[in-house]
Nucleic acid binder design. Sequence first.
RNA 1: CGGGGCGUAGCGCAGUCCGGUUAGCGCACCUGGUUUGGGACCAGGGGGUCGCAGGUUCGAAUCCUGCCGCCCCGACCA
Length: 419
Amino acid sequence: MKTSNFPIFTVKSDPSDTEVISHKLMIKSGMIRKLSSGQYTWLPLGLRVIDKIQDIVRCELNKIGCREILMPLVQPNELWKESGRWNEYGPELLRFKDRNEREFCFGPTFEEVITDLLRQDLSSYKQLPINLFQISTKFRDEIRPRFGVLRSREFIMKDAYSFHASTSCLDTTYSKYMEAYKNIFNSLMLKFTMVDADSGNIGGSESHEFHVIADTGEDDLLLDDSNNGMNVEIAKERYQEENIEKIASKIGMRLTRGIEVGHIFKLGTKYSKPMNLRFTDENSQINDVFMGCYGIGISRIVAAAIEQNYDDRGIIWPKTMSPFQVALIELDSKKSDEIRKYTENIYEDLQKQGVDVIYDNRNLKLGNKLADWELIGVPNILIIGQKETDDRTMTLKRRNEDQKQKVTPEFVNDATLRV
RNA sequence: CGGGGCGUAGCGCAGUCCGGUUAGCGCACCUGGUUUGGGACCAGGGGGUCGCAGGUUCGAAUCCUGCCGCCCCGACCA
């Protein structure tokens, strides 16, 4: 990838309408632009990070036998009336009519649609269990969108659904998702925790939330030394006490803040029963299907990762979600074909080694380029100018180190340049 | 929805209180030249329905009324 066909939209001044650091840095680094409140366009750079996260999520879900589908954003109200949520769900559900006066809503979540999908094709226990997921844009008419993509109205979410002939099978699968989620957040290299949670609007019996730990989070958590714990709603309920500090000292946990990035639920028959999703078991008996659902806020993870990893120069990406592993900076190439040729060679070598590299061939000064790539947060910067061309070296500047170092062309093989 | 703040060039802002020439500044952008290893310099240049609508006035970015949008706090919710 070269900057000549990968536009960089960094800005120098702080945007006036941002509060939290992730929002500010996402605007400054050119990852997103606001269309209106709670609505953001993902620029090439931001979308690349989204893609890295999606790759990891897809990989881990595939490992536990979950297959990808894609459902429509706009959903007919009949399904929501069947499940009972047309009336239960508040104004967050954006409703509208089409030209024929039929009522629809923008999907904030997809239990109704997928339950309807399965009831058309599911009849026997022999088909179960089934695990499906999608990664798509969801819409919730948030009462107050804020903090950029941390709480937006349109957002990208992975939602998975599981279908079972028994609660024990649901339990087993639920545990698999729990492990898959831990693998996902470990792969993303984030400090996170899983806590007992309230199943809220989605419904069901058991539920766990996954939080990225960050001071700027909107959720209060009670955690022990190994970052296990519960959210405060559960804590209040469990200990019959409103004062969080009291509970914290009583059970020896500390009060922390988190950003909810994942939530898994055992739904049981909450949707299958009213919507007639049934199967015939080995005794020819007809039963309601047991369901689970499992969400991950893809776009929210981007911001959450930044809240956890930045300094005064900009973002510091965990390498697994960085838009690039290496920024290759070319200097003074206008003066010298030799520099251009040498840098091109290094670029091709990096590509041959499978290194995810962006070749910065813009006609800018070193300071401008370094400032941009440090703002953007790529883990490795390689600089090539006249000096390096003359002595056949490269200058390496790591994002998390202050000092630069000289390296040889063989450095393109270095394992630290790859994920 | 309640409270607070803001809206002037692509971005960041001054000017508004106290009405008065062609509405400014920094960054960014374009042209020419000089520079060139941590955000260069000089010279020239382009870009504005001052959020929208109405009103007051000889005259409105500035005063009045209404509306719209954005941000923050709260309530609410994932």
